[in-house]
C-alpha cells in the first residue's frame, strides 16, 4: 500500500485514492486536430520506466485532483503539486520522463 501525500489532507493510504494516469495532458481543440492527433490525445499516455508525473484524486478525503511524481520501478513517492501550477522537477538528476 502506498502512502500518498494529498496536498490538502496530508499523508493517506493509497486505497483512499483513484488513479488518473499521466498529468498535464491539455485538452486540445478537437476541430484543429486530424483523426490521428485526436486518437493520440484520447488514448496515448506516458508509460515510462522511472519517474512519472501522474494524476490522483483523493476520493475518500477532500475529493480533489492533484498531481504527483512517483517512480514506476521503485514506487518512491516524489513531490505532489496542484493542477495548473508549475511542475516541480523530477526527484532525480537525469531521470526519465
Amino acid at each position: 500500500m502506498l502512502y500518498i501525500p494529498c496536498p490538502h489532507c496530508g499523508l493517506r493510504n493509497e486505497n483512499e485514492f483513484h488513479y488518473g494516469a499521466e498529468a498535464g495532458v491539455a485538452y486540445p481543440d478537437p476541430n484543429e486536430l486530424s483523426d490521428s492527433e485526436w486518437a493520440e490525445y484520447l488514448h496515448i499516455r506516458a508509460n515510462p520506466k522511472g519517474w512519472l508525473a501522474e494524476r490522483w484524486v483523493h476520493f475518500a478525503g477532500c475529493g480533489k485532483w492533484f498531481n504527483l511524481w512517483r517512480n514506476t520501478v521503485t514506487h518512491e513517492i516524489g513531490p505532489a503539486y496542484l493542477p495548473f501550477t508549475k511542475q516541480p522537477k523530477a526527484p532525480q538528476e537525469g531521470s526519465e520522463k
Binding site: 500500500m1 502506498l2 493509497e14 486505497n15 485514492f17 483513484h18 488513479y19 494516469a21 508509460n47 520506466k49 512519472l52 501522474e54 512517483r70 514506476t72 520501478v73 521503485t74 514506487h75
Partner: peptide, 13 residues
C-alpha cells in the same frame, strides 16, 4: 494494482 508500474510486484491490500 491501480497505478502504472514495472516493479513486478503489487500491493498486499
Amino acid at each position: 494494482d491501480a497505478f502504472n508500474s514495472y516493479a513486478q510486484r503489487g500491493g498486499f491490500h
